[in-house]
Simulated scan of single mutants.
Amino acid sequence: MYKLNAITLAMLMAGALPAMAAQSASDNDNQPVAESDRAIEVISVTATKRRTALMETPVAITVLTQEQLRQSGIHNIKDMADLVPGLDISMATDQAAPVISMRGVRSTNITELGDPAVGVHLDGIYSPRMQGALALMYDVERVEALRGPQGTLFGRNSTVGSINVISAKPDFSGTFGNVNLEAGRFNTRSAGGFVNLPVNDEFAIRIAAKGLKRDAYLEGYWDPNQYDTRRLSPEVLNAPVISENSYQGIGSTVTQRENWWIDSAGTDPEAQRVRALTPANKKDFYHNANEYSYRISALWEPSHGRFSNHTVFQQYSNNSGGSLDLVNCDQLRGRPDEFGGG
């Protein structure tokens, strides 16, 4: 009798365990699950001129959000070269313009007669001059870098790729804003932010701005004898000139090339009289930064989204000193003059 009861109890427990497990699973299904635990973030892009999911877009594309740009210290397109595979950006110092290369292909004709190999667009508007690609990037929704020929959708100016900057649109959900302040080496100061102002359920305005200032990391001198005297004070320009026979630079004598220029000036005494070099202020010397930009955008969506009008006005000003090709003096020191040394 005892053995029968034990066997019966074991059979009852074995039958009860699956029922308890099923009930526990049913209870777990009824419990609320956090949306972030079961949902996957969907990134929408407009690389094909229509809104599609990034994972479903048949284009080799890299998407950067505003948060990623801020964390990486990106201020313009030139700074994002290290974040996109196959992208390289160099500077043509003679015209202060970027030369964008993608997958090893580029176009060095950055004049009005040539088309770049990689096109740059801001909110769907093509930037015909590469100097405009250096405009400050701020308050953007995302940046799309497309690799591969994009001539079908973006024209002949995108032989090997296209870079599309999409600014953030006004929001109808409420009034909010953001302010960012940065400081760094070489007296770097950066300030930017935006404010979103919904007027009603159909019309909203967004105002954004950014400014960047940075001193040059070079020490140098301005030559008052050249044509470009924008950075020189009236005191320097009106200073007495030095005799052609005793011309001295700042801490050193005149170089051989400058001596050749003086000798080639002819016999005119005035043409041979030159001004001494003047130390440059790092605030406005080469490789500095002094630029600002602001943007005002308005979004109108009547008829519950069946019609949309997004109007953008943007102003950008760059008063920087530009860039300069530098020479590695340590590598050239001791080499013969015919090989660029001296």
Results as ranks from 00 to 15, higher is better:
Met1Trp: 00
Asn5Asp: 10
Leu9Ala: 07
Ala10Asn: 14
Gly15Phe: 01
Gly15Asp: 00
Ala16Asp: 05
Met20Cys: 03
Ala25Pro: 04
Asp27Tyr: 01
Glu41Ile: 03
Val45Asn: 05
Val45Leu: 06
Ala47Glu: 10
Arg50Pro: 01
Arg51Tyr: 12
Ala53Asn: 14
Ala53Ile: 07
Pro58Thr: 07
Gln68Ile: 08
Arg70Glu: 11
Ser72Phe: 05
Asn76Gly: 07
Lys78Gln: 10
Asp79His: 09
Met80Gly: 10
Asp88Ala: 03
Ala96Leu: 08
Arg106Ser: 13
Pro116Cys: 05
Asp123Met: 06
Arg129Trp: 14
Met137Cys: 00
Arg142Tyr: 15
Val143Tyr: 04
Val143Met: 03
Ala145Val: 05
Arg147Pro: 02
Thr152Lys: 01
Gly155Leu: 13
Ser162Pro: 08
Pro170Asn: 05
Gly174Thr: 15
Gly184His: 09
Arg185Cys: 05
Thr188Leu: 13
Ser190His: 12
Gly193Asn: 13
Val195Asp: 10
Leu197Lys: 08
Asp215Pro: 10
Asp215Leu: 13
Tyr217Lys: 11
Pro224Glu: 05
Pro224Leu: 08
Asn225His: 00
Tyr227Ile: 03
Asp228Gly: 02
Thr229Trp: 06
Arg231Phe: 01
Ile242Asn: 04
Gln248Met: 14
Val254Gly: 13
Gln256Pro: 12
Ala265Leu: 10
Pro269Met: 05
Glu270Arg: 12
Glu270Trp: 02
Ala276Gly: 11
Lys282Phe: 04
Ala298His: 06
His304Gly: 03
Gly305Ala: 14
His310Asp: 01
Ser317Gly: 06
Asn318Ser: 01
Asn318Val: 05
Asn328Gln: 09
Asn328Thr: 10
Leu332Arg: 11
